[in-house]
Simulated assay, not measured.
Amino acid sequence: MQFLQPILLWGLLGISIPILIHLWRGKKGQVIHWAAMHWLATQDSSVAKGFRLENIFVLLLRILLLDLLVLLLSQVFIPSVSKVSEERIIHLVQPSNLITEEYKFELQQALEKGEEVYWADEHLTAIEGLDELNAEGMFLKLQSSLDKIADETTQLNLYLINSQNSLGSKNYLSKIKPTFFLGIADLANPAPQNISIEGGKKLEVNQNGVLDSIANDQNGPVSITIGKSDFAYYMGEISSSERLFIKASLEAIQDVYGFDFLEKERMEDANLVFDHELPIEKGGNKLYFISDAFSFSEQSNLITFSDQLDFDHSELVQTGKLPEVILERFLAYYGVEQQDVKLSQTQLEHRFLVDSPKSQSKRANLNVILLGLFLLCFAAERYFANQQGI
């Protein structure tokens, strides 16, 4: 037996109320007049105290009424009573021929069992047979497909390429804890990239994924140009403590890499926006950092944080990782590829947040029985209480 609202069990202390009332009435006594009472001498009259059997029965009924009411409010759940009549297993496959080839047998078994198999794309496209296991021209939209998963899903199997660049660096919101089937990817890290900053400064992302300065006359196979205007930022309706830590993070990036961030008074003049409110029109030429907003988006120019970016609320600020996160998102937005790495099972599990855990999706399954017993006891208590005049 489980209680979905266990804090309400403190209401069981209320059973002391009818007990105290009955004890008080028994101590006080009750004067009973009868026909020949006035013929008795005063010294022969006495007061009879104590409970009769009927009083004790009414007391037990009242205690039982309070118990049933508390159990009804605390939402009793018994797992053995609530059995799932039919499992609904869903297989969500990343659009990749590498994945379909590696897990072809598992997907074939799922289709033969009549289980649901979908591509993890924007429309949650269904896969009806093996001849449809061709991912050409399809793109991974993991959050969009997770949002379309049915609430009644009892098991979710995710087939993903074990690659940081393939999965992205965002967190994902799922209605149920997924089981992962990871494909073995050939991690082809990008060639060293040159970043040219307007004004002559050059940086390089080397094969180890480290951003470092290089000589101005050195050229690389890939060159990305970032203008001075791209470093202009705007701070919206955020707290003073958030402003302090965001500015400190930008200054830390500037001290290490020489990026000249400049604050603007109007959003129209900035390319980086720090705010609490999600923009109505998320312009493609701006990168938004939205704090204190629990949202999951596939847009590359929208970065959300579930907490406020200050020391009291954000783990990123407390651990000093906020500058690193801002720089990583900034460079990724302008096309700088990260070094590709494999993800562990624990890393993947931390990236998928469960929207409705099993414990929260339970529903009290004894409410009807408890309500029926409550009404029956209430009727019995009223009947015997009226019979005894108490």
Rank of each mutant, 00 (worst) to 15 (best):
V117K: 13
P95T: 03
S291P: 09
L353P: 00
L156A: 01
L61H: 06
T319R: 10
L72F: 07
M138Y: 12
Y333F: 06
Y103H: 06
N157K: 01
Q94Y: 05
L278C: 15
H91P: 00
D186S: 08
V336R: 14
I21R: 10
Q347V: 06
A191C: 15
K201F: 09
A232G: 10
I195N: 12
F378Q: 09
E87V: 01
Q30H: 14
E263N: 06
F181Q: 00
S144Q: 07
D151Y: 05
K321L: 13
D255W: 10
L4N: 10
L71N: 03
E328F: 04
R52W: 01
L65H: 06
V84K: 00
K321R: 14
L244M: 08
L73Y: 07
A270V: 13
N216A: 11
A270Y: 15
E128S: 11
E251P: 02
Y172I: 03
L211V: 02
G236E: 07
V368W: 09
L4F: 05
N219G: 12
K247W: 11
K27S: 09
G14N: 15
S166G: 09
A36I: 10
W34R: 14
W34P: 15
N165M: 04
R25T: 10
I280G: 12
H38D: 08
I226P: 12
D269F: 11
F57M: 10
D310C: 10
Q254G: 11
N367H: 12
E237D: 03
A270T: 14
T153A: 15
I21C: 13
K286F: 04
D121W: 13
I195D: 03
L376Y: 11
L203M: 05
Q360D: 07
D275N: 10
G209Y: 01
V81G: 09
A215E: 04
Y257T: 00
Q143R: 07
L343E: 09
N55D: 13
D217N: 08
T154E: 01
L287T: 08
K104L: 06
L107Q: 00
T225A: 12
L375Y: 08
E112V: 03
I238C: 15
G220L: 05
K321C: 09
L371D: 13
L302V: 04
S196Y: 15
T154P: 00
Y234S: 06
D269C: 07
I127M: 02
P6G: 09
H38A: 03
D230G: 06
G200M: 15
T346V: 04
N55G: 03
E237S: 08
T319H: 02
I21F: 04
I238E: 02
T225K: 14
K362M: 12
L348G: 03
E315R: 08
M1V: 14
V368Q: 11
I176P: 00
A41Y: 07
L130Q: 05
L302R: 06
D269K: 05
A126Y: 06
M235N: 10
I15A: 09
E112Y: 11
P95V: 06
L9M: 13
F289I: 03
E152T: 15
S361T: 05
S166H: 14
E337K: 05
S82H: 04
L371S: 08
K83T: 08
K27M: 12
